[in-house]
């Protein structure tokens, strides 16, 4: 070894071993995740546990009163309004999310082609998802408000499509109106996320498929869909959870009405909290919703992991 081959003092002999020593320490992984865990504990776990604690109390006007065990839960589960809100959320999720998912996937496939003005289109597609939900609500109220909304008046009423009522004033239509607004708001987000996922797929399998003479349908179902599956499941799950919690647009467009036709669990929870000041009841509602999602997400995860091998 020549003098020039000699590593600088300490370069190879001191630092790497010290680093390696740290890495081998049993505390090293915990140290790395500690900031995240501390943050999550402070902003999520402690409030959640406190919420669970409140749900076991008579809590009105922001004041914690008697410990009442599970009475808030019993009252909640016996309330037809709670079950109505769960039904509203179920209908909302079962219609909105699959449509957003399918339209998003189709849109992403179209974007993947070399279509004209793609570079202009992509930023424009971000607009609905970038708008605050309250603004989305106001925009669609201006469009669909009975008798004076731009679309209501110029199209629905003038062409006799909807003259006797308006979308958000009709108990039969209001929920579908809200679903339409949600699809408008979130489909572009799904589209762009799926598009980004498609751009990251490896090209070799596609070349191989082309050599083997696979047609576009076969390529989509045998290559694109399986390779995208982890992304599709994660985005689908997140969107599903988010859709179940829908609040802002309902608050602006119908406030849960007509009657309780669009009263989602989040809207009901808001009323329990800020209209009725029954914090115990609203905490019980939040715990029940969490429990539903905890069970659902676990089942979803296990199915995806074992049967579809996506995680």
């Amino acid at each position: 070894m020549t003098a020039t081959d000699t590593p600088p003092a300490g370069a190879a002999s001191a630092s790497p071993p010290r680093l390696a020593h740290h890495r081998e320490s049993r505390w090293y992984p915990y140290a790395l995740i500690a900031p995240t865990m501390i943050t999550l504990t402070v902003v999520a776990l402690i409030p959640f546990l406190y919420m669970g604690y409140i749900s076991l109390h008579e809590a009105r006007y922001g004041q914690l009163r008697d410990f009442i065990w599970f009475q808030n839960f019993a009252t909640l589960l016996a309330d037809p309004r709670f079950w109505n809100s769960m039904w509203v959320a179920l209908v909302f999720v079962c219609i909105a999310v699959p449509i957003e998912f399918m339209l998003g996937l189709i849109g992403a496939l179209l974007l993947s082609q070399k279509i004209r003005f793609r570079n202009v289109l992509i930023p424009l597609l971000f607009i609905p998802s970038m708008m605050a939900p309250i603004i989305v609500g106001l925009v669609w109220k201006t469009m669909l408000a009975g008798s004076w909304g731009f679309v209501s008046y110029n199209i629905l009423e003038n062409f006799g499509i909807l003259k006797e009522t308006s979308i958000f004033a009709s108990p039969d239509l209001a929920l579908y109106g809200i679903i339409f607004v949600d699809i408008w708001e979130w489909t572009p987000f799904m589209m762009l996320t799926f598009f980004a996922g498609m751009q990251a797929l490896p090209v070799n399998p596609y070349w191989a498929a082309a050599v083997d003479g696979a047609n576009p349908v076969q390529i989509f179902f045998k290559l694109t869909l399986p390779m995208l599956a982890p992304l599709l499941f994660v985005i689908g799950l997140l969107r599903l959870i988010d859709a179940f919690k829908v609040y802002d647009t309902i608050f602006i467009l119908t406030n849960g009405g007509p009657g309780t036709a669009t009263e989602s669990p989040s809207v009901l929870g808001y009323k329990y909290t800020f209209d009725f000041w029954n914090i115990g009841q609203s905490s019980a509602l939040a715990v029940v919703i969490w429990l539903i999602f905890f069970i659902f997400c676990n089942i979803f995860y296990q199915v995806a992991k074992k049967r579809l091998n996506v995680f």
Binding site: A145, G146, S147, W148, L162, E164, T165, S166, F168, T254
Partner: peptide, 21 residues
């Protein structure tokens, strides 16, 4: 009343009167 009355708030009512319908 106008078909959308069930969605009219205290702000919509004067708006409708101002629109002249």
């Amino acid at each position: 009343a106008p078909p959308g009355q069930a969605e009219y708030s205290l702000i919509d009512v004067p708006t409708v009167m101002g629109n002249g319908i």
